[in-house]
Design a protein around this nucleic acid. Structure first.
Lengths: 208, 208
DNA sequence: AATTTGTTTAACAATTTTGTTAACGCAAAA
DNA sequence: TTTTGCGTTAACAAAATTGTTAAACAAATT
């Protein structure tokens, strides 16, 4: 075996594990299934990652970065004016969701089997978010002062944005069955949804 | 054992199973754990329900009714005028979520391990929803005609309502860690959220 | 009391899933 | 060439989880 192929097996397992864990969750994932997807014996999986839990932690480690990005995205670009910053932030977050549609479900699920995830999220994400919220709140207050927008609580607003941007991806499998195939075209559905979310927030904060 | 206790065993198992499945999902649930919670041997569980899957189906059967109620609730009371109907519907759905906070997660999770759930949801819920959407769309069109609200697509609106009303419950475990304990008082958080959701929808549809 | 019926228990069996080990192979270094 | 070390395989072991059974039991019916 050449060196490239060697290092590849570890990567193949990681890739297969990501797919397995993201679609089935920790409890539903099977190490044998991961090994099979990766095209290696399941002994190899244990050789490289020892236990299922350690392999899972590697996937968490990798995805938590994207998760963080997704949350921070909503807070927008600090160099833009408040309203534009917000529009841009909402759109950016939505785009990240489009690119990683399995992520929300995965994290919601992960909290069930690994409660220690809370601490990880806190140490990795909370500090950033807290600072940015304070910053954004100041801008919101200033914009409200100038009469551009209504007085707005950024924490409340952030939950609204997350709700609107994240829920459609979590619930996508339900939307068909429950609504009755109203959305044959995923692309179109997502484009409309993105525009609608921005519209909703704007109507909420812009002073009439 | 008295007679009351005897007949109760089946119920005790169902109750324990509901708690286990709702908090841990199908894959994470353990029949031994359910039996233990119910205070019976795990052989009893198999005596009454044969397999884990059959027990799970009983829980699905029970909870799908509440799930249906929750969705229909958002469509409001047909005897009310459009705007009031909507306000009332949003509030009602939110209240159902408060009363059944584990339900959304459970159903999102359940789709992973039982894909046949789609068919169940379709046959149980879709027919109702479809009719009510058509009904509500007519009312919305009429209200828009009268200049009371903006032209509104009810399917889009329904997804918005679900997003706003459901997401906070799914994500509740995250809100603390990520936002940094901004919500020490759950009651207060929920009351504010409910009002905010109604406000958001109203600002979106009411013609200024 | 004897019979029937449904319930309960404890021990066991089967299956699934995860984890381990010893032996083997191969490429690079000594 | 021998050695060293990592990667690989196959077979095995262990653990966890679900499912079964025979026998005991209890309550109601005859």
């Amino acid at each position: 075996m050449t060196e490239i192929e060697k290092t590849d097996n570890e990567q193949l397992i990681l890739k297969a594990a990501e797919q397995e864990f993201l679609t089935k969750g920790y409890d539903g994932a099977r190490t044998t299934s991961i090994a099979q997807k990766a095209g290696v014996t399941h002994a190899m999986l244990h050789y490289y990652f020892r236990t299922k839990k350690q392999l899972f932690d590697r996937i968490i480690e990798k995805t938590v970065e994207t998760f963080k990005e997704a949350i921070l995205a909503a807070l927008g670009n600090p160099n833009m004016l408040f309203v534009d910053r917000l529009k841009d932030g909402i759109a950016s977050q939505f785009d990240i969701m489009v690119a990683n549609p399995l992520l929300p479900r995965f994290f919601l699920n992960a909290t069930i089997s690994s409660p220690e995830l809370y601490d990880l999220l806190y140490e990795r994400i909370a500090s950033f978010v807290k600072v940015l919220i304070v910053d954004l709140q100041k801008e919101a207050d200033a914009a409200a002062e100038r009469g551009e927008i209504e007085k707005t609580d950024i924490q409340v607003l952030l939950i609204t944005i997350m709700s609107l941007n994240v829920f459609p991806f979590i619930a996508y499998p339900f939307i068909g069955p429950v609504m009755g195939e109203m959305n044959p075209d995923r692309e179109k559905f997502l484009a409309e949804r993105k525009a609608e979310n921005i519209e909703l927030i704007m109507k909420r904060i812009i002073k009439q």
